[in-house]
Amino acid sequence: MARTVTTQRKVIVTAIAWTIAIAIFFPILWTFLTSFKTEADAIATPPKFLFFNWTTENYTTVQGRSNYFLHFWNSVIISVGSTVAALIIAIPAAWSMAFVPGKRTKDILMWMLSTKMMPAVGVLVPIYLLFRDTGLLDTRTGLVIVLTLMNLPIVVWMLYTYFKEIPGEILEAARMDGANLTREIIYVLTPMAVPGIASTLLLNIILAWNEAFWTLNLTASKSAPLTQFIASYSSPEGLFYAKLSAASMMAIAPIIVLGWFSQKQLVRGLTFGAVK
C-alpha cells in the first residue's frame, strides 16, 4: 500500500515494538550482563544493570571447571554431523518425490512426517538398552545416528518443498545434454537448490544443537554436548548466578550468532517451506 504513514504514528509503533522486543530479549540480555558480574553483584539488591565491575573471570572459571571446549566440540560434531548425514539421505529422496512423483508420493511424505509424531519417550527404553548393549551409550556416533533419524523427516519435507519449485524442464535439459542421474543431481539440482539446502542445513543444525531429550538421556560426560553441560548447573551450583550466566552464554552464543547472521535463510527455513 503506497500510502503515506504519519511520522507520529510511526514513532508510536516504534516505541511499542521496541518495548516488546526488548522485553522478549531481556532474559538473554540479563544473562549476558550477569555473566560479567561478580557473584555478589549478580544477586545485589537493587539489581545492577550496567554499573558494576565488569569481569571475565566467570568465563575462565567455567572453562576451568567443566571443560567447555570439549562439550562445545561435541555439540558441533553432533549437530553438524547429524544434519549432513540427514541431507545426504534426504536429497535423493526429495529428488525422487519432487521429480518422479508416483501415486503414493503424498502418502509416503505424510507417513514420514507422522514418524515425527512418535514421541521420543515411546522408544526411549529400547534405544537406551540397544545403545547400552552395543556400546553406543555416551558416544557421539550414537547421538549422530539418533538425531539424523529424528530430523530426517523434516529435512526430507523441507527439501521436497524447495525442489518442487525447480522446473522439471531444467533437469530434462540436463538429461538431454547427456548427464546421468548422479551428475544431474550434483551439477544441476543441488547448485540450484543451494538457498533451500542452506536453510534446511541451518535450521537443522539449530534444532540438533538445542535438542535436549536424547542428548540428556544418552550421554553422560565424554560425549555430552552443551545441553548436558548446562544441565549440570541445575544442581545447587546454579545458585552462583554469574557462573551460571557465563556458562549459559557460552552454550547459546555460537548458535545465536549463527542464527543472526543467517536470518534470511532461516526465516525461509523456519516456515518449513509451507509459507511463502
Partner: peptide, 12 residues
Amino acid sequence: LVIAPFFVMPTV
C-alpha cells in the same frame, strides 16, 4: 531481538 529466544537451548 524477537527471534533470539528460539536459538536458546531448553536447558539454558
